[in-house]
Amino acid sequence: MAAGTFRKANILPGFGPALGYTVFYLSLIVLIPLSAVFLKSVSSTWAHFVETVTAPKVLAAYRLSFGASFVAGLVSSVVGFLIAWVLVRYEFPGKALADALVDLPFALPTAVAGIALTSLYTENGWLGRYLIPMGIKVAFTPLGVVIALTFIGLPFVVRSVQPVLADADRELEEAATSLGATRVQVFTKVIAPMVGPSLLTGFAMAFARALGEYGSVIFISGNLPMKTEIAPLLIVTKLEQYDYAGATAIAVVMLVTSFVLLLGINMFQRRTRRYMEADEA
């Protein structure tokens, strides 16, 4: 982050006020309120904190939550990129409708999504009645958790990639093709670097959002301790015992992890962008 060496003279206005407002609003809405959670989590002893977050049940829940969110983020990235690509590049009947439908997971209350998904995948559901005889169990297994989280995360990827893809300079691809680049080369050398950062952003958001998701997952997961119990559910059960310190301790670990991940991805993006700019220069 040695920005000083890279800095070029910038004549654009508004840095001061815009930064000031950003930091002020960020502090007011996010940072100050969140500090209440951190302070609460350390309101009892450090030993209690460690004991809480390393209990076998909590570790099992972390494994499920992080694992399922990661897989769901990957699935969302692949599928989401494909959907964004098709929506931006091709014309086909029903495209406008398809475009509109992408946002539905946002609009549907998560509990409704959970109920709807569960009803699809149980034994008498539309999909469950075919899948279960084949030995594929979705409802009340970690696979169900992944599906619910993919449903939640998919729009993040599509909506991150779509504007960048739409904005991408088609002439670059033209030039590359006319210079004899193959389709695969165009994709890896021109399109991927252009879309890559936004895809990564989409993945990170889908992952982070999946990690905290509660409403839709508890319906489809089955909530069996050590097996299909997600970390946010443990937060709720801690609260049920008026153990605010324990609940916030579990939350803080998730929060810090997803923050570190997001920070890492943002820094990585920065670096790749810098290389690209250096290449151009």
């Binding site: 149980t122 008498n124 009340f140």
Partner: peptide
């Protein structure tokens, strides 16, 4: 096989989902 978070959730699991 499944522990719902509330009483009505369990009723639904049993009655609507046939589990």
């Amino acid at each position: 096989p499944v522990l719902d978070s509330g009483a009505r959730g369990s009723t639904t699991t049993f009655a609507q989902r046939g589990i």
